[in-house]
Design a protein around this nucleic acid. Structure first.
Length: 283
DNA sequence: ATGGCACCACGATGGTGA
């Protein structure tokens, strides 16, 4: 089990006075999200990425593993604590952390759900929520109704969590592109899943609780996406969507100094169709 | 408009994803 960063890790920078909760953690801290699309297939990708990108916290989605099959030993050996909630074939979420993980909650107390799509924990004085939002298939379908109900349940629960935890981040695969600039060809996607008006309204409502999109806190290059279809050379043509997000409360947004999408992972052999999103938090 | 591609549970193809 990993206990500390040790001599080989980055030097600990001790904070002065005002924020005791962060006093024992290195700053800046990095938090990230990545839909791995099967942890069984992508375990080596994950370990390779973590070695090159030793983030403090990583939320992963679509592990597609029951808990008895979770690669706990390999992740611990990489220097990470981890908590997870999985199921057979579909869904499944986990939070990896270099720092101790406390107050773990699986699922949404306000929305009964057979699918493992939510896990939350307190790490380094922050409330971290890892979310795998429902895909929704197509507007009008049962799955679309489930997506909208699920998002409403998320809204209710996040409202409550924000009252308890001023320093809170919701990281994950939202399966929603917030704006036209987050879609490679908006005219193709209008009224299609991930870019319908009700989905975008639900995401906007969540943000109106006081959550900010870390990526849009900064000037970014054009045409930045976090997902590309496996088909039709979509990645090579950069035909993608930005649907993976890190949302921050004001307390964390004001500490956020950078946010980027690591699209290089999509060039690897047998890649996930999603790329990691990373945010940096200063003291 | 459809299918393309990938993963999973199968033990052939179908469900699901985005």
């Amino acid at each position: 089990m990993h206990e500390s960063d040790g001599a080989a890790g980055p030097p600990l920078v001790l904070q002065t006075v005002y924020d005791a909760a962060f006093a024992t953690y290195p700053v800046p801290m990095k938090i990230a999200t990545w839909n791995v699309n099967s942890l069984k297939v992508r375990l080596q990708h994950l370990l390779t990425w973590l070695e090159a990108n030793p983030v403090d916290v990583l939320c992963i989605q679509e592990t597609k593993l029951t808990d008895d099959k979770f690669p706990l030993a390999e992740i611990n050996a990489a220097g990470y604590h981890v908590v997870f909630a999985g199921q057979k074939t579909y869904n499944g979420v986990a939070i990896l952390s270099k720092h101790p993980i406390e107050d773990v909650l699986i699922g949404n107390p306000h929305f009964e759900d057979e699918q493992q799509r939510l896990i939350a924990a307190t790490i380094a004085g922050m409330r971290i929520i890892c979310a795998y939002v429902v895909n929704g298939q197509e507007i009008g379908s049962d799955k679309f109704a489930y997506k909208m109900a699920w998002l409403e349940g998320l809204h209710t629960w996040v409202t409550e969590e924000m009252r308890r935890h001023p320093a809170l981040a919701v990281l994950g695969d939202y399966n929603i592109a917030p704006e036209a600039r987050d879609v490679h060809e908006p005219s193709e996607w209008e009224n299609h899943i991930h870019f319908t008006a009700p989905e975008r309204a639900a995401l906007a409502a969540l943000m109106e609780l006081g959550l900010q999109d870390a990526f849009r806190l900064f000037e970014q290059p054009d045409k930045q996406y976090s997902w590309w279809d496996y088909r039709n050379l979509a990645f090579r043509r950069n035909r993608g969507l930005r649907i993976d997000h890190i949302l921050l409360t004001e307390a964390l947004a004001k500490r956020c100094t950078a946010c980027h999408i690591d699209r290089d992972t999509r060039k690897w052999e047998q890649p996930s169709d999603h790329a990691p999103v990373v945010a940096t938090l200063a003291d």
